[in-house]
Write a protein that binds this DNA or RNA. Structure first.
Length: 270
DNA sequence: ATGCACTCCTGAACGC
DNA sequence: TGCGTTCAGGAGTGCA
């Protein structure tokens, strides 16, 4: 589920629930997520008031008036469940606030929860190495060209490198390359600047559209309230191998790059 | 330095 | 129905 548009959707869903609320209680059921949950997470959050909610790449940021920020990552299967009817096996952390219960649910436990000082988020190594936000001006054809220079890695793999652009994942990398008409296996360093500019524009466009649609829902709910994002209906290539290219009618193919499924139209993308 | 296979974990979907 | 296999939206680690 969660790439940048899905995390943005989750943050927007959490904002009205959490903003200005006092955290009454935090229950940690499992500490062994992708990274260990801080042993003092519950006591440091208890009694704190939520001041802002934001996002950096695929990380959600929940700042409190105690000077700490809760940093969450949803991994592959993470979700927040609002006021669950019944506790589920993978509700690893439960936050009680404003009369609501919010469960961090993550079967595969590839997600994580950190608590860091708000004035030095960079002290968290996971955040320190991130590249520009794709929707910011700092990310454009030029920054992409600098990152691609001399690199023999497939352009699709480069797009997944969070140091190059922070927040793209497997779905939107394929979709952006289709829009830019660039073959995903093409060596990054051998793509003309003009085409990289088109690619940067495509990245921005597909992410903006996906956010507007509430993200994509494949197997999971995206939004906190349990509604489904709808952008999966807009996929032009992702998961559509064997189906017709929406542009030329040719067959969409599936290939594997650096171990990740990749989808493309061989005729449209060069 | 670079590129990539492997790894963590669980569950769903598929083939026989 | 049941069982084994494959795959999944992430990303750090270690190896060649």
């Amino acid at each position: 589920m969660p790439e940048l548009p899905e995390v943005e959707t989750v943050v927007r869903g959490l904002r009205p629930l959490l903003l200005g609320q006092r955290i009454d209680r935090v229950l940690v059921r499992r500490y062994d997520l992708r990274w260990p949950v801080p042993a003092d997470l519950a006591e440091r959050l208890r009694g704190a008031r939520v001041t802002t909610l934001g996002r950096r790449a695929k990380f959600g940021l929940v700042a409190t008036d105690r000077g700490d920020t809760l940093v969450f990552h949803l991994g592959m299967s993470g979700r927040f469940r609002l006021d669950p009817d019944q506790p589920m096996a993978h509700d690893h952390v439960v936050i009680e606030t404003g009369g609501h219960q919010l469960a961090f649910f993550d079967p595969r436990r590839f997600g994580s929860l950190h608590l860091v000082a708000s004035d030095s988020l960079q002290s968290l190594p996971l955040l320190a190495g991130l590249g520009p936000e794709p929707l910011d001006d700092a990310f454009d054809g030029q920054s992409l060209a600098r990152a691609a220079a001399g690199r023999r890695t497939p352009i699709k793999s480069l797009l997944l490198d969070q140091r190059v652009v922070a927040g793209l994942g497997n779905i939107y990398a394929s979709e952006a390359l289709f829009r830019a008409r660039i073959a995903p296996a093409r060596k990054a360093g051998r793509i003309a600047q003009a085409r990289l500019e088109r690619l940067a524009d495509a990245v921005k466009a597909v992410l903006a559209e996906a956010i507007a649609a509430g993200g994509s829902s494949l197997r999971d709910h995206v939004t906190v309230s349990g509604e489904l994002g709808t952008f999966q209906h807009c996929f032009q290539v992702y998961g559509r191998h064997g189906k017709a290219c929406p542009s030329c009618g040719g067959r969409i193919v599936r290939l594997v790059l650096a171990g990740r499924s990749t989808y493309a139209c061989r005729r449209c993308q060069r």
